[in-house]
């Protein structure tokens, strides 16, 4: 009996070891290093100087501090981005995936077009959109835009959302497509025999069948949205010296760590740690919620 149990233990290690080793070396160690730095004052060059919880206190409680201002402004914009972006990036690709699943005429071309933006890098995408949105020279001028959309509220948010969904929804769509393909046809046939309409089939069979993948897209899209950096930066940097109007938290963190002057790496790390904890808590809540539905 005991011998069998020992065998099972070893096997799982063989499977997870390659990944785990790489994960620990290249991800965990740097993260722990980052956590250590968050308790120090460091300019990235000299020796870090231990300051305990000072950075956290300054960021969270010192209302006069620039870092406090930047943190909460960044957090606010980040949370707004998550709230706007996540529903769009879950529902829109799901809708497309469902329609494409029926295999309408020309579906191969349509899914190619819909996925195409995802293949571009962020710099390319940003460049094209800035050109298009330019009030004087771009498509926006033809459509009669009165202000520069990319940097005027509230249009800036709308432009940011449109560009983000356009660029990123392809990934989730592809996952849904793969998931839908794995749902056994037999279940649909059985339901049809019972007289179920398309809506019933959708809610009773399709959605539950892909719930694992739905959880995935939900968790990853949320975590990704919290970590967003590329889109707001590219979108709102229309001119040299023009500060972006929508500052998400990661942008602030970057500018504090890698600005034009000396780095305040301790503060930046502390902000990153807080953000990381935030995302983790949000994810835990998601998991619990989905679990209870199961």
């Amino acid at each position: 009996m005991k011998r069998k149990k020992k065998k099972v233990n070893l096997t799982h290690l063989v499977f997870i070891a390659p990944h785990m080793i790489i994960f620990i070396v290249f991800i965990v160690i740097p993260i722990f290093f980052g956590i250590y730095v968050s308790f120090t004052k460091w300019d990235l060059i000299g020796t870090p100087q231990w300051v305990g919880l000072d950075n956290y206190k300054e960021i969270l409680f010192n209302t006069k501090s620039t870092f406090n201002r930047q943190f909460f402004d960044g957090l606010k914009n980040t949370v707004l981005f998550v709230i706007f972006n996540v529903p769009l990036c879950i529902v829109v690709p799901l809708a497309f995936a469902l329609v494409l699943h029926i295999r309408p005429l020309g579906s191969k071309i349509y899914q190619l077009v819909l996925y195409l933006p995802t293949l571009f890098s962020i710099t390319s995408v940003g460049l094209i959109w800035i050109q298009l949105l330019n009030r004087r020279f771009g498509l926006a001028s033809v459509m009669g835009a009165k202000v520069q959309w990319a940097i005027t509220m509230p249009y800036a948010w709308i432009a940011l959302m449109i560009m983000t969904v356009w660029w990123t929804m392809g990934s989730n769509m592809v996952i849904y497509q793969a998931a839908l393909g794995s749902v056994p046809k037999e279940e649909y046939e059985a339901a049809e025999m019972d007289g179920a309409g398309w809506f019933t089939k959708l809610v009773k069979i399709t959605i539950p069948s892909i719930r694992f993948q739905l959880l995935y897209t939900l968790v990853i899209t949320i975590a990704g949205s919290f970590n967003v950096y590329g889109q707001p930066t590219i979108m709102t940097r229309v001119d040299l010296g023009a500060g972006p109007k929508i500052n998400v938290l990661v942008q602030y963190i970057r500018s504090i760590a890698f600005g034009s002057g000396q780095s305040a790496a301790g503060i930046a790390s502390a902000m990153a740690v807080i953000l990381g904890l935030f995302i983790t808590i949000v994810s835990i809540i998601q998991f619990k919620m989905i679990r209870s539905e199961d």
């Binding site: 991800i27 965990v28 160690i29 740097p30 993260i31 290093f33 980052g34 730095v37 990235l44 975590a223 919290f226 970590n227 990661v250 963190i253 970057r254 760590a257 790496a265 930046a268 790390s269 990153a272 740690v273 953000l275 990381g276 995302i279 983790t280 994810s283 835990i284």
Partner: peptide
């Protein structure tokens, strides 16, 4: 959870 941490200061270590 660890993978969600922002990877910014990461590049130094």
């Amino acid at each position: 959870a660890l993978s969600f941490f922002p990877q910014i200061i990461n590049i130094i270590p």
